Amino acid sequence: MPPRRVVTGRSQEPRRRFAEELRLLRAQKGDSLRKLGEVLGWDASLFGKMESGQTLGSPEVVEALAQHYGTGDLLLTLWELAVGDPTQFKEQYRRYMTLEAEALSMWHFGVSTVHGLLQTEGYVRALLAAGDIADEELTRQVEARIGRRQSLDGDDPPRFRTILSEAVLRTPLADAEEWRKQLEYLVEATERPNIALHVLPFSAGPYDLVSTDVIFLRLPNGRTVAYTENAHRGELIQETGSVERLQRAYDAVRDLALSPAESRKFVMRMWEEVPCDPSI
Rank of each mutant, 00 (worst) to 15 (best):
T171Y: 15
T98N: 06
T8M: 01
Y227R: 02
Q92V: 06
L169T: 04
R148T: 13
G70A: 06
E184G: 09
L200M: 09
F89M: 13
L40E: 01
D277A: 12
Y207I: 02
P275F: 04
Q67H: 08
G154Q: 04
T77D: 12
M106H: 03
W107S: 14
R180Q: 04
L56P: 09
L40T: 00
L22G: 11
T71S: 06
A66N: 04
V39G: 04
S112A: 07
L183C: 03
L56Y: 10
V124C: 15
D255I: 01
E239Y: 06
S259M: 02
S52T: 14
E188H: 12
F160Q: 00
L46T: 08
E178L: 12
L183Q: 03
R95Y: 07
S112N: 13
L74I: 08
L128A: 04
S203H: 13
R145S: 11
A129Y: 05
S58I: 02
Q67P: 00
Y96H: 02
A82K: 09
R94H: 03
G30Q: 10
E121M: 08
D175P: 14
S112I: 13
L186W: 02
L169M: 05
L74M: 06
E21P: 10
E177R: 11
A130T: 08
L152H: 09
I215R: 09
L209G: 04
Y96V: 00
W107Y: 13
L128Q: 08
D43F: 05
T240D: 15
I215G: 11
L258G: 07
V253D: 04
F202E: 12
V62Q: 11
R269C: 09
A101W: 00
E100Q: 10
V114K: 02
T8C: 02
S45W: 10
S32M: 09
Y69A: 03
R180H: 02
Q247P: 04
L164F: 10
D153I: 08
E143L: 12
R17L: 10
P278N: 01
D31R: 15
A82H: 05
G147S: 03
V225Q: 01
P193S: 05
D208R: 15
R145K: 14
H232V: 14
A204I: 01
A196V: 14
I133P: 15
Y227H: 07
S52Q: 14
K29G: 00
T113Y: 15
V142Q: 07
L74G: 00
